[in-house]
């Protein structure tokens, strides 16, 4: 009997379906927890779901590549989801057009602050240059950030972690920070989340308000392009 169970587990643990199911189930549980606390920003569903999955992988001794065989189907949907950001953009086009000037100004301010403050803080902590390069593009979406990091002598794998950390930090702090600044405009709040904390910030914005989500998507897309131009320039200073 015990042998049968362990054989069954050996079989299941190597099926992509097991880890696909685990990912979606962990998210369903995480989202429920987040809902039950009224979407309190500290109960971020990405973090809660990742903690659940990491606990299961650790307890079962499952290596990440085996997990990713199943999880890749969820991961893959990031592509079509990025294309889908065009839809709220078009649906809110009137508001977006009227906000063209604040969008442009806030993009420049946020991108300069994100890259500049990361380099300045990291430099003050005495981090080595390759780590500084890896930090610089942390506010943009992973493929762009890793590309910037690789082309300028950073460590792309470290950049990937820092990008995720940035997204999580942004998603968890955006609501209390915006409240402290008495920011009532959902467009400004959403834009801030997307421009500084890319997709994970945008995901938070969509859970709070559709208009905030649309502006977060704009911020994320614009900053991807802008930071690619900005990082090489600012790195010259450090």
């Amino acid at each position: 009997m015990g042998d049968d169970v362990s054989l069954l587990w050996v079989y299941l643990s190597e099926r992509p379906l097991t880890w696909l199911t685990a990912t979606v189930t962990a998210y369903a549980i995480a989202d429920r927890i987040a809902l039950s606390v009224g979407r309190h920003p500290l109960f971020n569903p990405v973090v809660l779901a990742a903690i659940i999955v990491i606990a299961v992988l650790t307890l079962t001794g499952t290596p990440f590549p085996v997990y990713f065989e199943g999880a890749q189907f969820v991961h893959f949907m990031l592509g079509p989801a990025t294309v889908a950001l065009a839809i709220p953009l078009v649906e809110n086009w009137g508001t977006v057009k009227r906000a063209a000037r604040p969008i442009a100004a806030a993009l420049v301010a946020a991108a300069l602050t994100a890259v500049g403050s990361a380099l300045a803080l990291g430099w003050a902590f005495g981090l080595p240059r390759d780590v500084l390069v890896s930090l610089a593009p942390k506010s943009v979406t992973t493929p762009i950030a890793m590309g910037i990091s690789a082309s300028l002598g950073g460590i792309p794998a470290l950049t990937a972690i820092l990008v995720i950390m940035t997204g999580v930090c942004g998603a968890m702090t955006v609501t209390p920070l915006m409240n402290a600044l008495k920011m009532r405009d959902m467009a400004a709040r959403g834009f801030a989340a997307g421009v500084a904390a890319h997709g994970i910030g945008t995901a938070r914005a969509f859970q709070v308000d559709p208009l905030a989500g649309a502006f977060a998507g704009i911020g994320m897309a614009l900053n991807g392009a802008f930071t690619a131009l900005l990082v090489p320039l600012l790195l010259g200073l450090f």
Partner: peptide, 13 residues
């Protein structure tokens, strides 16, 4: 959208 970031977040390990 949050669901789609779970595999990448797990990848941090």
């Amino acid at each position: 959208l949050s669901l789609l970031f779970v595999p990448a977040a797990v990848g941090v390990i």
